[in-house]
Simulated assay, not measured.
Amino acid sequence: MKLIGSGSYANVYKYKDTFYNRFFILKRAKKELTNKEIARFKREFDVMNDLSSPYILEVYCYNPDKNEYIMEYMDYTLNEYITAHNSNLTIIQRKKIAQQIFRAFDYLHSKGHLHRDISPKNILIKEYDDALVIKLSDFGLVKIPDSTLTTVNTEFKGYFNDPALIVEGFDTYSIIHETYALTRVIYFVLTGRTNIEKISNPDLRAFVERGLNPDKAKRFQNIRDMISAFKSI
């Protein structure tokens, strides 16, 4: 196995299964985790395993003895793909990627979940001969109804998240924080940039200003609001 990533809770490995003749990913919890952190790690698998959408990364089996699970292999992170192809992506191609991201989060929210760690590194891309397919990954911070794993002491994470959460507390995270981070991701998809200063397209500027508005009552209140506004860009 080849180590390809390491986070707060787990190490991520890539390996080739000789029977299926294809690559898979193994995510293994770190040995020093507390019982609560192990429970959060296992919940990440359970949430992804319960979801059924072409826009959610597939997971296959959980090994409780080693606290690890297997999931499908993807070709790129969104960050890698946009960075590598930014000079030749058309606006039509960018919009197709954005529309899939909207569908992914529309489905996730329909299940009562908030991702809470939205970034171009946690959205993955599978490249086929005739299409790109995006999938959401990294559900370690997912917020689900009646969960006891989110407390007032939960650390602020997610580099696309609303910085106001640092003061307000990560336990206050709601749909308006989700649409904030998602606005930043969509802007990145359309432009390849994260700097939101000097946006020349007035429709895109209006979209970004609404999504990131300091007045939360003026932000996008759900994904459907975002989709409607996106159509004018």
Rank of each mutant, 00 (worst) to 15 (best):
I176N: 13
I97C: 13
K218E: 02
R193Y: 12
H85N: 15
Y69F: 15
S228L: 08
E155V: 09
A29N: 10
E44N: 08
E209L: 11
S110L: 08
A84D: 15
E44W: 06
F45P: 00
G192L: 12
E72D: 12
V185K: 00
L89V: 09
S147I: 01
P64G: 01
V59Y: 07
R40P: 08
F45N: 03
A84V: 12
K16W: 11
T34E: 15
H177V: 00
H177S: 05
H85C: 11
R28K: 15
L57W: 08
F23N: 14
N35C: 03
A131F: 05
Y107I: 12
G169S: 09
L204P: 06
F45T: 05
N49C: 08
I134D: 07
I144G: 06
T83N: 11
L33W: 10
Y15Q: 05
Y20W: 09
F170R: 01
K121G: 15
F41S: 00
P145M: 07
V142T: 11
I97D: 04
Y81I: 02
E58G: 10
A29E: 09
D17M: 04
K2A: 08
S232A: 07
R224I: 07
R193M: 13
S228H: 14
D215I: 03
K95C: 07
Y81N: 02
I125D: 14
P214N: 07
Y15N: 06
M1G: 12
S53K: 07
I91M: 15
N122F: 14
F102Q: 01
S147W: 02
P120A: 02
N201I: 08
E68P: 04
A98K: 02
L33K: 11
A104I: 09
A10E: 06
D130L: 01
F139R: 02
A98R: 01
K30F: 09
E80P: 12
K231E: 07
Y173W: 03
F45G: 07
S52Y: 11
P214L: 04
F156M: 06
T83S: 14
K2M: 09
N122C: 12
F207Q: 00
T77F: 12
A181W: 00
K135P: 14
M48E: 10
K157T: 07
M1N: 10
H109L: 08
K31E: 15
D225E: 13
T18I: 14
A104Q: 10
E209Y: 10
G140Q: 13
I186G: 03
D106L: 02
I70W: 02
F19E: 14
S87A: 10
T154R: 05
E68K: 09
V189H: 01
R22G: 09
E127F: 02
